[in-house]
Nucleic acid binder design. Structure first.
Lengths: 231, 231
DNA sequence: CGCCGTTGTCAACGGTGTTGCGCGAAGTCG
DNA sequence: CGACTTCGCGCAACACCGTTGACAACGGCG
């Protein structure tokens, strides 16, 4: 105890087959395969060529591993954002990057939709959004609330899309075709708007929705900043 | 086949202990208890005083039951919306009602955040939102996209809040305290905005965020309608 | 009455995350 | 250099999950 607590960092065995890094990378490889139930401890062991339970020597439980993996994907998002953009385009780039990464690792981001990693890359994302709303002209409590609005909305939308990707094929088929089936058959008297817009509802694309949601966030910040400036 | 298809409704046994109704109500009772893993087939059997697998005589699988239960909760939402509101207040009432129901049955709405029930009450909600955006002045593809924006955003936010409620206590404690712990300790040079706004970030309430998100949706519809009117 | 479909029970299957035990090798120290 | 400790790993097992198939009891109907 006396000596080991003096040099705790050196305790690492050189010949350790598994490292947190290797486990995280294997997790990403599995998550990228996309199939719904892909990311299990046993499959992770398979991918690593090791016993599944060996993972527990490096992460307390699957949740802690997941947080680490998720933070790694946040790093990918940040790397995709170019410098020199104004606040609006920075938020747009963040949104687009988040979506791309979420669709790349759906198993991860669907679970993380309502979590925080509390790790370094998350701090960088928070800083980025706060910088954007600050540049837009908000500060103090206003900035804090609008950061949370942007962060939570982005996370939620991206998690939604990822979760949808993970649905078993039959459930997804049911959801997908509903606009062309169930919604076409509703009673025209009771549901005039659905009846009138059935065709357009079936034609809406995910990208249109995503665009509308992102622009709504930007507009909201803009409006609030304008109101503050006036006061 | 010939006779049973003539009177399919009468096939019901009079003495049937279990009915779809009873199962849905038991599910709601369990979901309302709130604990994370509460809603399992075995616990449902316990609540019903029957064998867990008896449920499969009335629902194809747990997913189908879940869709039915979710649609029932949508009914509760609709019942909470008063008549005679203009489109903005109708959307606000829908949002508030959805949140209230989601927090009442977190186990249900957290799973349903990226699903559609394709059942009657969902049609009514869709009709309601479409009516609102129509009243706001949108039509055709514009109305369809903005309906999806509102519907998906609402579902996502509400599912997020519900999922958070279901987190095991230690994870939730970690997430909750992070604004007062990890975020207070970041490097002031690398993260000036976080450092400056740490106090305000810790003080943001869920209701403030919810309000901001709902108003952002309304503002976006308003702006789009104004732009369309001008053209 | 006797058939038959419906409904509940029971045991079991394959899957999940997780833990306790033992082994063997790497690092430390007399 | 040998003994001792430490620790990463494999193995077997546990509790729980959703789901299935066989079987028994029961009611309605010919």
């Amino acid at each position: 105890m006396s000596k080991s607590s003096v040099t705790p960092a050196r305790t690492k065995r050189v010949g350790a087959q598994l490292t947190p890094e290797a486990i995280i990378e294997a997790s990403l490889r599995i998550a990228a395969r996309g199939s719904a139930d892909a990311f299990t401890v046993r499959r992770l062991g398979e991918e690593l060529g090791a016993d599944p339970t060996a993972i527990y020597r490096h992460f307390r439980d699957k949740d802690e591993l997941l947080l680490s993996v998720a933070d790694r994907t946040l790093g990918e998002v940040l790397d995709s954002i170019p410098d020199g953009l104004d606040w609006k385009d920075r938020l747009r780039a963040l949104a687009a990057g988040s979506l791309a990464v979420a669709l790349k690792y759906p198993a991860v981001s669907s679970i993380m939709a309502s979590r925080t990693t509390r790790r370094t890359n998350e701090f960088r994302v928070v800083e980025l959004i706060l910088g954007a709303v600050t540049e837009a002209g908000l500060d103090g409590a206003e900035a804090a609330v609008h950061y949370r609005m942007v962060g939570d909305s982005l996370l939620a939308h991206v998690g939604q899309r990822a979760a949808y990707l993970l649905l078993d094929p039959e459930s997804r088929a049911g959801d997908e075709s509903s606009w062309n089936r169930e919604y076409r058959l509703v009673d025209a008297h009771g549901f005039p708007n659905i009846t009138r817009l059935a065709q357009q509802l079936a034609e809406v694309t995910d990208d249109q929705i995503f665009h509308a949601r992102v622009e709504a966030l930007i507009t909201a910040i803009e409006q609030r900043a304008a109101a503050v400036r006036e006061a």
